[in-house]
Design a protein around this nucleic acid. Structure first.
Lengths: 219, 219
DNA sequence: TTTTCTTGAAATCTCGAAATTTCTGATGCA
DNA sequence: TGCATCAGAAATTTCGAGATTTCAAGAAAA
């Protein structure tokens, strides 16, 4: 079993509480490996910002704060706006159809959740499809590093919103907003895309707090 | 000695060649510690993108390519533009004076290098002062995550440009461009800042390749 | 010659124990 | 009581050895 990947999944999907201490000696029991192996995984997660590390004081999950959520959301807006707009310019029809496919898969799952409520199985599928949709959005941007930084920020966002996600009360909005993003992609108008990406994230910002300043004004 | 910090410094300052293999059993000799400790440091560096890691195949330095340089430069432009403009809006006089101080220190070192050539001692001071200047530029932006991602990208940039830096042929341009950025900060005009940040990095881009699209056009 | 297999060496990864540091809370003193 | 000190316990970090995997060179087969 891949200890790193599994702990990462748990850290992102809310299996650990905000601020919870993560002890290698404890986690090893879940994997039947040594504490050193767990420690190695935790160090890598720390470098990605999913876990906090203090020398001689071990590991713990980041604390929740509204400011952190705002900050991460803001960064997602910035990276996804830039990535989506670049994809629109360079992606061509191949990208548009991949985006359409990713959206189709995601919206299918979201509609099932809206209809029958969120089972564990559906929640897992949703997590995968949601990431895939947003990654597809950026996939034709031509910048490896933009994609890499986005994944880092995306994971932190998921971690912060894990509790919120579990309720799936946003699912109706999500369906609409994702559709609006796909429409913008097909329209070819980057200003519209900017607006749609912003609207998708708007409710996770602290109202009134300033957002991006080097991007054109929104709202 | 802090193995992680020291290997990081070496990886950034060009002590290892592009593509060079990094073996824990070899590096341990430089620090008098066990291979596990070195391995731990390398894993953390890999998570930051300063070293590449392949399972069962160890660690190596990233290969150089013009595309990688362009990509990283582009990301620096994006993050520093955004961070500098936000700092201008929220930083106030305290930020302006810190920026001035950081620039004064940096330009002092750069003038000495221009006059007497780059000694090892001056090169080390320059590395520190250059980072401090650019971090000060972003320091009042109000976004922890923007600052963190910028540091990651900055380090990769330094790594890619380590050879180029050593010659210090750009030092005259640098003095002028840093001054121009400070002037823009004091002018209060964010459009000017955008332009000045872009000009500072322009020569590290691949000519003709598209840059940011969600930011206003430049050049 | 080219390809596949074998085999020994080298590199990587995992492990549990030992060394070090931090935490806890009990004791003594003002 | 309030504060400092000092064990003992617990947690963290380091270590070198052993297990596993990859790499490389030569032999065998096509």
């Amino acid at each position: 079993m891949d200890v790193f990947e599994d702990i990462k999944t748990r850290a992102i999907s809310g299996a650990f509480a905000h601020g919870e201490k993560l002890r290698a000696e404890v986690l090893r029991n879940d994997y039947g490996c040594s504490a050193s192996t767990v420690r190695e995984a935790l160090l890598r997660l720390a470098a990605l910002g999913l876990v906090e590390f203090q020398e001689q004081r071990g590991f713990r999950m980041p604390e929740y704060s509204q400011e952190r959520q705002h900050d991460i959301t803001q960064m997602r807006i910035m990276l996804e706006t830039e990535g989506a707009c670049r994809s629109m310019l360079h992606g061509g029809v191949a990208w548009e159809s991949r985006l359409n496919a990713a959206h189709h898969k995601l919206s299918h799952i979201e509609r099932r959740i809206a209809a029958m409520g969120p089972t564990d199985e559906l929640a897992k599928l949703w997590m995968e499809a949601e990431l895939e949709f947003h990654q597809t959005l950026l996939s034709a941007c031509g910048s490896d590093i933009l994609i890499e930084l986005h994944l880092q920020v995306y994971n932190r966002y998921r971690q912060v919103k894990a509790e919120y996600d579990r309720a799936f009360q946003h699912v109706a909005n999500n369906i609409r907003e994702h559709q609006a993003i796909v429409d913008a992609a097909l329209s070819g108008d980057t200003d519209t895309m900017r607006q749609r990406v912003f609207e998708h994230f708007e409710r996770h910002l602290i109202p009134g707090k300033p957002v991006n300043v080097s991007l054109p004004e929104m709202v």
